[in-house]
Design a protein around this nucleic acid. Structure first.
Lengths: 246, 246
DNA sequence: CGTAGTGTTGAGTCAAGTCAATGGTTGTGG
DNA sequence: CCACAACCATTGACTTGACTCAACACTACG
């Protein structure tokens, strides 16, 4: 079953990662009506203050969540990769408290929120899977608070690179040598709470130390374990089950 | 209905804040069996790696969630006040990814997790209320990432003081002049991602600027609006409904 | 070939950290 | 009641990681 019959199969697979779904649950999800919207880079998927009526699922491309301070500083609070649900955080909230934006050109499957809510009640496994998905998001938020609050610059960046590596790997989206990180250094700075200049210097230092290699925005990892060590990375918080990445 | 018939009435009230419960829902919650455990200051309620079988609800006292880096630095990722559920973040996760500890001597009502899960399916309003509670937690996590990642020390501390003020006020737990903050400066430092020394200096600066007054650990707010401004505080992320605090 | 966006670098500054000492308060036991 | 200990708050002197400002280089693209 390698070629998806429906775009929503990606969603069922993602949900199954953390929470059991039986065939009937899966079929019920696949039977939901959906549409596809293509978003250009920097295009907004959700804006703070919005009352979302749909639930988006990222099919292709990358997206990010962010908040702004009163004087315009931006903090990215989450990164999303293909397969990630984008609106479960607003599943039962009236008004979005943050923004979601496409990082690259992205295809998003849109499901009517009311229908998904009904299904989540009619089929408790589905409701549970949606809930679990948001709990894992929350766990990642907590780790990011730690990352930004208590780690020095090299560890912060290494940690984010490790997290993305593991998450992409779990979705089968890594390539031989690492992965493509479709992000400017300014955006990465907003992920880790640093300035772009300092991110640039820190990336160069990591590269000089043999912890990463860069080519354009392709990053690879000559010594993955050393990078994990520098980044103080322990993937328990991702709740992927199983142990360390090989 | 001012004197609680059951400790769980506090929980029903808290859940009703964000999500509708009818009388039958409330009765069903109140009918759940529960026990009370008293936890001494610094006592653990949940440890990283635990597989929680119960769901705690904080009845009295304060608690906090935290994570540690590999070299022992601590980051507090959430503060909890009476009425707050403590284990919904682990409602469907197998293994806790962080610690929950009592800040003060606390009474915690313990509900069997399996029973609460069953109720959450049998009564969708209850399930929804639990879900919403975790979504609001997640919203606070996001705001804290922003706080720690993108605000300077005075704003970070002011923001946390505002958040606690609003949350305590919503629970009717403030006193005439402010509230009692039962926390050492070292713990506050771990909330905002600073060192205790710098927190001390920043608190003194806030006090010198007329933004807060301190007496022991009682804090009060001579100019609440100015503190909100300094802390860049907008309470939308708390999802309390309504507008600004008077 | 010009322009815009991004990445890179240097020089100087500053917010926050570190280290270390002093003071205050609370509680305990003699 | 005093002495002591433990814990916490406060302060000073010094260091440093990260920021700021500003220039320059590279690449993609029309």
């Amino acid at each position: 079953m390698s070629s998806p019959k429906s775009s929503l199969e990606l969603l069922t697979r993602k949900l199954s990662t953390h929470s059991p779904l039986d065939d009937a649950d899966r079929d019920a999800i696949l039977a939901l009506p959906w549409t596809i919207r293509t978003i250009e880079p920097q295009g907004y998927i959700v804006r703070e203050g919005d009352v979302p009526a749909v639930c988006g699922v990222l099919l292709t491309g990358f997206a990010f969540r962010h908040k702004l301070t009163g004087d315009g500083a931006r903090q990215i609070v989450a990164l999303h990769i293909p397969g990630d649900p984008l609106d479960f955080q607003n599943f039962y909230l009236d008004e979005s408290d943050h923004n979601v934006q496409a990082l690259t050109r992205s295809d998003v499957a849109l499901i009517d929120r009311a229908e998904l809510r009904e299904l989540s009640i009619a089929r408790p496994n589905v409701g549970r899977a949606i809930f679990v998905s948001t709990l894992v998001d929350a766990s990642i938020f907590r780790e990011w608070i730690l990352n930004v609050g208590r780690r020095a610059a090299p560890a912060r960046i290494a940690h984010v690179l490790c997290e993305l590596g593991v998450r992409l790997e779990a979705q089968g989206l890594t390539n031989d040598h690492g992965y493509h990180l479709p992000m400017t250094q300014e955006q990465l700075a907003d992920v880790v709470g640093l300035t772009p200049v300092h991110v640039n210097r820190t990336l160069k230092a990591l590269e000089a130390g043999g912890l990463i290699k860069r080519n354009r925005r392709q990053v690879s990892f000559p010594d993955w374990q050393a990078l994990r060590d520098v980044g103080d990375f322990n993937q328990r918080y991702l709740h992927l089950g199983g142990g360390q990445r090989a």
